[in-house]
Structure formats: structure tokens, C-alpha cells
């Protein structure tokens, strides 16, 4: 399965919409185990992406992902800026290959996160949403239940990367804010795929 440019645009648009409307939830999740700004950070990113896409309508998938990446890198800051930025930048480079399957694309984004964050699954980060989604896409079993299960799993983990890791055992029982924003990303994808 591949994503057409028009669908990919819808995907990103839905994602930034969700980020804007869920700022408070993301801030609250981050207040519990981080520093309370993930919603604000992502909202800033969302506005920057919208502005960049309005300024220049992307003509290729590579363009779309690169514009998204740059907006995130330049406007989000924090941990999530370079992470989402790197994921989309790597996706932008890879998507130039016409044969790339959607599942490969998401895996490449996931690998970008791992490289930038020097991290992996099981550390209670956004990677714990990206990797299961990527796996499910590969197995052609991607639906809302994958995301729900990933979030449920993230909740039970003890953080070993990012701010939440300072809390050690106390980080258990909370959804990681980056995992939640990534859940919005992939819920947007489901909406696009479901149409």
C-alpha cells in the first residue's frame, strides 16, 4: 500500500488539526511525567506546518514531508521537534523512491526517531507507538486497536529516555505525551486510509 499525495496531505492536515485541538491533553500528560509543554510545543509545530503548507503547496510527497520536517525542526524545539523533524526528514528522502510501501515509510521514520533519540522500543517514548504501527502495516493489520494497544502498553512501561526517565518507577501508569501525539498522527492516517 502507498499513499497518494492528496491523501498524504489530508493525513498531515488531520494530524495538525488534532494537535491544535488536543493541546491541553498533551500538556496535561506532560505535566504528569515531564515538564508540561508537549501540547504547546506540538501546537506551535502544527501552526508552523499549516503556515508552511499554505505558503507553498507541496508538489510531491517528498516536498510535503520535507516542509513538515522543517517546520517541526524550526518551530517546535524541545525533544519532540528534532524527533518529529528527523522522522519526517528521513521519510522525505526515502519517499523519492517510487517503490516505497507505506509500511516501509513508517519504518524509516521510526528508525529516524531511534537514531536521533539514541533510543528504542520499550523506553516509553513515541517510538512505542511508531514501531507497533509500522509492524502492523507490514502485517496488513493496522487499525485503531493497534494504537490503543500501543498506548496501553506505553502506560505500563517505566521510562528510560526523555524527562519521564527521571521519575523511574513513578513514570509507570501514565501515557507518554509523545506517544499520545504520535497516536494522533496514526489515528489521522486511519481516517485517511478508511475513506
Amino acid at each position: 500500500m502507498k499513499l497518494e499525495l492528496v491523501d498524504a496531505k489530508k493525513w498531515i492536515t488531520l494530524f495538525v488539526e488534532k494537535l491544535e485541538s488536543n493541546q491541553t491533553i498533551l500538556n496535561e500528560l506532560d505535566t504528569a511525567i515531564g515538564d508540561g509543554d508537549h501540547g504547546t510545543n506540538m501546537k506551535r509545530g502544527a501552526e508552523a506546518v499549516t503556515a508552511a503548507l499554505e505558503k507553498k503547496e507541496p508538489e510531491t510527497l517528498a516536498d510535503l514531508y520535507k516542509t513538515t520536517a522543517f517546520a517541526m525542526i524550526q518551530k517546535v524545539g524541545g525533544a519532540s521537534g528534532p524527533l518529529y523533524g528527523t522522522a519526517f526528514l528521513d521519510m522525505s528522502k526515502a519517499v523519492k523512491n517510487d517503490d516505497l510501501e507505506l509500511s516501509d515509510l513508517i519504518q524509516i521514520g521510526t528508525d529516524g526517531l531511534k537514531r536521533r533519540g539514541e533510543s528504542d522500543t520499550g523506553m516509553k517514548t513515541m517510538i512505542d507507538v511508531w514501531q507497533p504501527v509500522s509492524d502492523a502495516l507490514k502485517a496488513d493489520k493496522f487499525d485503531q486497536s493497534v494504537i490503543d494497544a500501543a498506548l496501553e502498553n506505553v502506560k505500563g512501561l517505566v521510562a528510560t529516555k526523555g524527562r519521564a526517565s527521571y521519575l523511574e518507577e513513578k513514570s509507570k501508569g501514565h501515557i507518554d505525551p509523545g506517544a499520545q501525539s504520535s497516536a494522533y498522527l496514526f489515528e489521522s492516517l486511519i481516517e485517511v486510509l478508511g475513506e
Partner: peptide, 11 residues
């Protein structure tokens, strides 16, 4: 200076 409690951006 980044945003409040938020790392500044690379640029």
C-alpha cells in the same frame, strides 16, 4: 533562549 522549558531550535 528556547520557549519556556523547551529547548531552542537548531537554526
Amino acid at each position: 533562549a528556547g520557549e519556556v522549558f523547551t529547548s531552542p531550535t537548531p537554526d
